[in-house]
Design a protein around this nucleic acid. Structure first.
Length: 403
DNA sequence: CCGGATGATTGACG
DNA sequence: CGTCAATCATCCGG
């Protein structure tokens, strides 16, 4: 399109090829009575100026625009353009996109992800970022947050957006200011299993990171809103300004605005998604207990085993008993539940393997029992670990339940 | 480093 | 909701 325009502007009307009625129309609209040649010359000039205006420097173009605006032929030309546009509008314009807008959008998108995600990676924390191995499955829907990227380009896809919103809300990222923090803490405690009173130290780091993410999320969100508004008003001003020189229907403006809003909301979606990812990484790093599993200390296992073997016929501690054990062992109630669950299943699976242990603890409880009743007769020899049930009661019936 | 031990998680079930 | 059964991820002793 660089070499052609020079050829076109010598023939006035032909420059607008494809709209044969133009010069005719212009003549009508101008309504002047001057000589033929002068008018044609006028029209030719105008069209030439319009066609080549983009080749010029900004100042020059501005000046020419102004000149054109004041030109006596302008209203006529404007009307013609309106008409032409009306006729052709239906065909084209459906898929016309504003390149600068899309450029802006993609740029914003790319930098959001970077920013948010980098906030989740704890600097100085040597944990390798491989959250795909174990499946951290959390409350807010099937952990599929990663799969949406790219698919959401055109449609915001409401359910996904809702899921992201829900998750952010649940994590306390999107909620109200400081109440959100405690909500996050509560969620964290719940996720890590019950009363998280003792490990609050571990979670302080987590909370700090979470609030960092939260802060970024909010500032970014605010920035987008502002940018969206700014951009919208800018575009509208631009369109308004342009509507003086080219026909723009209010419907078009509306459409433009809605496009802008859609784009920006899709960016918001990206922000939300990135935030979700960041939180997930954070959680898998700080809160997935399997990552930093510690065996209970000797004393705790002692206490638990003691209870288990002394209630071998019905190793299902009540809620109160669990609390008691938890307190004594310095672990949480759900840890006690886990322990008993594991113990029951593993004991049942291989009773033989546990017989020795059973003997020891049976003896131990016997000793403590006889400690009270002063009677040390049969508990004296725990050194016969063979089978045949030589000791009191390894008669755990798996089907036995409390009522 | 390997394999068993062990605490935690998950899905099914009632 | 609590439990079971399977499984995961880590720990730990040899």
């Amino acid at each position: 399109m660089d070499e052609q325009p020079r050829l076109m502007h010598s023939h006035a009307g032909v420059g607008m090829a494809g709209h044969p009625g133009l010069s005719q129309h212009l003549q009508d609209g101008a309504g002047g009575t001057e000589g033929e040649g002068g008018r044609k010359q006028d029209i030719g000039d105008i069209l030439q100026q319009i066609m080549t205006i983009t080749d010029q420097s900004l100042d020059e173009a501005q000046a020419r625009k102004h000149a054109l605006n004041c030109h006596r032929m302008k209203p006529a030309l404007f009307n013609v353009l309106c008409e032409i546009k009306e006729k052709t509008e239906l065909k084209e314009a459906r898929s016309r996109k504003c390149p600068s807008l899309f450029f802006l959008v993609t740029r914003i998108q790319s930098c959001v992800r970077h920013k948010v995600l980098s906030s989740a990676s704890t600097s100085g924390n040597p944990v390798t970022p491989q959250p795909t191995h174990h499946r951290p499955k959390f409350g807010w829907g099937e952990g599929k947050v990663l799969s949406i990227r790219g698919a959401q380009e055109e449609e915001p896809t409401d359910p996904q957006l809702m899921r992201l919103d829900n998750m952010l809300l649940a994590e306390g990222v999107a909620g109200p200011e400081k109440g959100g923090g405690s909500a996050a803490a509560a969620a964290a405690a719940a996720a890590s299993g019950g009363a998280g009173s003792d490990n609050s130290v571990e979670h302080s780091d987590y909370r700090a990171k979470l609030s960092q993410i939260r802060q970024i999320y909010h500032t970014e969100l605010e920035k987008y809103e502002q940018a969206c508004n700014e951009f919208t008003t800018h575009v509208m001003n631009l369109l308004r300004e342009q509507s003086r020189t080219r026909p723009i229907s209010p419907k078009e403006i509306e459409r433009m605005v809605s496009i802008i809003h859609r784009k920006f909301s899709s960016i918001q979606m990206q922000l939300k998604q990135s935030t979700c990812e960041a939180v997930m990484i954070l959680r898998s790093r700080f809160l997935d207990a399997r990552r930093k599993r510690r065996n209970f200390n000797k004393q705790a296992t002692e206490i638990l085993n003691e209870y288990f073997y002394s209630h071998l016929s019905n190793p299902y501690p009540s809620e109160e008993a669990k609390e008691e054990l938890a307190k004594k062992c310095g672990i949480t109630v759900s840890q006690v539940s886990n322990w008993f669950g594991n113990k029951r299943i593993r004991y049942k699976k291989n009773i033989g393997k546990f017989q020795e242990e059973a003997n020891i603890y049976a003896a131990k409880t016997a000793v403590t029992a006889t400690n009270v009743s002063a009677h040390g007769s049969q508990a004296n020899s725990p050194s016969t670990p063979n089978s045949a049930g030589g000791y009191p009661s390894p008669c755990y019936q798996p089907d036995r339940r409390i009522q």
